[in-house]
Design a protein around this nucleic acid. Structure first.
Lengths: 138, 138
DNA sequence: CGGCATCCTCACGGATACTG
DNA sequence: CAGTATCCGTGAGGATGCCG
C-alpha cells in the first residue's frame, strides 16, 4: 500500500471539493493558482515556447513559470515537448484535459476584465461607508 | 488625486489580465483564491450564516472565512446583512455580480471533481516516467 | 454567535547566479 | 534557450484569546 489510509478513504467517497482531504481540492487549486490561470488561457491559442510564455504573462518570474508548468504537466493539463537541438527548444501545449480547464479559466479571465469597472465602483462605495462609519464612532 | 499614477495609466488601457499592473488581475485572484472559490459556490444555493459556511466548507479557519468574506464583500460579490439581535445573526448572500462569478467557479469546481480520476492517473504515469528516467541516469 | 487582535510558522514566490 | 539551485523576505494562514 503506497498511499495513506485517509487518501484511500477519500477516494471511496464521491469527490467533494468541500471535503478538506479530497483530491479535487488540489486539482482545483492547481488550475486556479495565480499563474496557472494565465498560462492555461495563453496556451488556448496554441503551442508556445518557454520564453514566449515568459514574455506574454506579465510579471511572472522564471522560477514560477517553470514550477507552474511542471505542476500542470504532472496533472496532465499541459504537454511538454523538448527538441534536442542547440540552442534548446521546448514547446508547451494543452492536452485535451487541459483544454477543458483552459476554456473555463479563460472565460473567467475575460469576465474579470469586463467587470473591472463594477468592482472598482463597489470598492469605492464600500470604503466610503467604512470611512463614514468610523467618523460616526469618533 | 487619490490614486497612484501607474493605476491611472493602467485604467486608460483596456483591462488585460496579462498586464502585471492591471486591476483585473486582482479581481481574478480574489475570485479564484483558495477559499473564495468554495464560498462563492456554496452561496449559489442561497443565503447562509457565518457558522453555516464554516461547517460547510471543510478545513476553513475562522480567520480566513472572515477575511475572504470581507474581500468578496468589498469587491461587490457578496452582500452582508447583520441582524441586531442577541445572539448575533449575520447572513451572507450573493449580489448579482457575485452570482456571475459564482456560476463560473461552481462549474470549475464540479469539473475538478469529475476529472479527479484522470488527473490521478496522469500523475502516476508522470511520476513513473520520472522514476525510470532517474534510474537510467544511475 | 460572529467577529477582531495577536502571535507565530511556513511555504509562496522573487532575485540572483550557475549549467547543459 | 531553458532551465536548476540557492538564498531570502513577505504574506498567507493557523492557533489562541478576548469582546459586544
Amino acid at each position: 500500500m503506497s498511499v495513506r489510509n485517509e487518501t484511500v478513504a477519500a477516494q471511496l467517497r464521491a469527490p467533494d471539493v468541500n471535503a478538506a482531504d479530497c483530491p479535487s481540492r488540489l486539482v482545483l487549486e492547481h488550475v486556479t493558482s495565480r499563474w496557472a490561470v494565465l498560462l492555461l488561457a495563453t496556451l488556448l491559442d496554441g503551442t508556445h515556447r518557454f520564453s514566449e510564455l515568459r514574455r506574454t504573462v506579465g510579471g511572472v518570474s522564471e522560477k514560477m513559470l517553470a514550477q507552474t508548468l511542471q505542476t500542470l504537466e504532472r496533472d496532465g493539463f499541459v504537454h511538454r515537448e523538448a527538441h534536442p537541438v542547440i540552442p534548446p527548444r521546448v514547446e508547451y501545449s494543452l492536452t485535451p484535459l487541459g483544454e477543458e480547464a483552459a476554456r473555463q479559466v479563460w472565460a473567467l479571465a475575460r469576465w474579470a476584465e469586463s467587470r473591472v469597472p463594477e468592482v472598482l465602483a463597489a470598492r469605492e462605495v464600500h470604503d466610503r461607508e467604512k470611512d463614514s462609519a468610523a467618523k460616526a464612532r469618533g
